[in-house]
């Protein structure tokens, strides 16, 4: 199957800093492709290179099977971009903003009017159509920003952290909208910091750091490579030292912590220790008030892969 986006050996430098480092990528038609990475990992730079907005030192970028260039207007016609920062005119109303940006792609007025109305309904901004952006809340502004980028019904959409600083209601609406766009046939490239969004939305995910793709796969595939296993928490009182030492020697247990009220057990990867713990407590007649088990999350894998040190944007 022909990829909608194909990147080969892409290198982009800012002086001595390698922002994108010999990167390969393929995004298939109709998928939501998540790009995860800490601040400064090269996500936005990668997108700008794919769009030919940024010059790059080395590599090839193909969109819809053709080389992407700044003047490839026939390719640009089918691309939509929603930037991290709202890019709208404060002097124009919601309707005018959407109509303006849609008009850069669609010259027929009747078609454009229909598309603008559809997207206004899609982002649920109908009652705000005459409002100027300054009068909109952060969430509504993000929805307007989204509408301006997708009104022309592009085949390929780049969404760069579209839900930053958005209230939960607007966020939900945006996420549902993205799924709807995918269902209507668009291919979506989605960058974010929010793991739960990626897990909810993306068919495939790449985790990027220092300009490189460290891992690509579905959410489950990525979680499966985690070196850590499930975490079991048991609420129990007065567990003595002997029991603790015995539990620690159980085969699936990696490590444990106990604070006289809660026992936290880290299990070895790819093991199921919950049953062993339940059996042990039952066999030794140790009372417990609550027990829970949590499998490793994407967030755990992300931190495992990219490290736990704090990052700042370059």
């Amino acid at each position: 199957m022909q990829a909608e986006v194909r990147v080969r050996n892409l290198v982009k430098r800012y002086k001595d800093l390698v922002a994108v480092d010999h990167l390969d990528l393929e995004i298939q038609k109709g998928e939501i492709y998540g790009l995860l990475g800490p601040n400064g990992s090269g996500k936005t730079t990668l997108i700008n290179c794919i769009l030919s907005l940024l010059r790059y030192e080395k590599g090839e970028v193909e969109i819809f099977g053709e080389p992407m260039k700044p003047t490839a207007y026939h390719l640009k016609q089918d691309i939509g971009v929603v930037s991290q920062e709202p890019a709208v005119y404060n002097e124009l109303s919601v309707y005018e903003n959407i109509d303006y940006f849609c008009g850069l792609y669609v010259s027929d007025k009747t078609t454009r009017r229909r598309l603008v109305e559809e997207v206004i309904e899609f982002v649920q901004l109908g009652e705000f159509r005459k409002f100027r952006p300054k009068k909109l809340s952060g969430g509504l502004l993000r929805r307007l920003n989204l509408a301006c980028g997708i009104a022309h019904k592009p085949r390929l959409i780049f969404l760069d952290e579209p839900t930053v600083a958005v209230d939960p209601q607007s966020r939900n609406r945006i996420l549902e909208g993205i799924l709807q766009l995918r269902d209507e046939g668009s291919t979506i490239v989605y960058t974010t910091h929010y793991m739960e969004e990626v897990e909810f939305l993306c068919d495939r995910i790449s985790i990027m750091d220092r300009g490189k793709v460290l891992i690509t796969g579905t959410s489950d595939e990525i979680k499966a490579i985690s070196r850590s296993g499930e975490t079991v928490r048991v609420e129990t009182f007065g567990l003595d030292e002997t029991h603790l030492k015995t539990i620690e020697t159980l085969p699936p247990v990696e490590s444990l912590e106990y604070d006289q009220t809660e026992l936290v057990l880290k299990m070895k990867a790819k093991t199921n220790g919950l049953l062993d713990i339940l059996n042990y407590f039952e066999h030794h007649d140790i009372p417990m008030t609550r027990i829970s088990s949590k499998q490793p999350t994407l967030n755990d894998v992300f931190l495992e892969i990219t490290g736990k040190e704090l990052r700042d944007d370059v």
Binding site: L53, T71, H74, I79, S83, A87, F101, L104, C148, G149
Partner: peptide
Amino acid sequence: EANQSPRAARSWLAPYP
């Protein structure tokens, strides 16, 4: 100029010289 404002960057991506 796409490097001077987000609006310009959005317009730059449009299929118009």
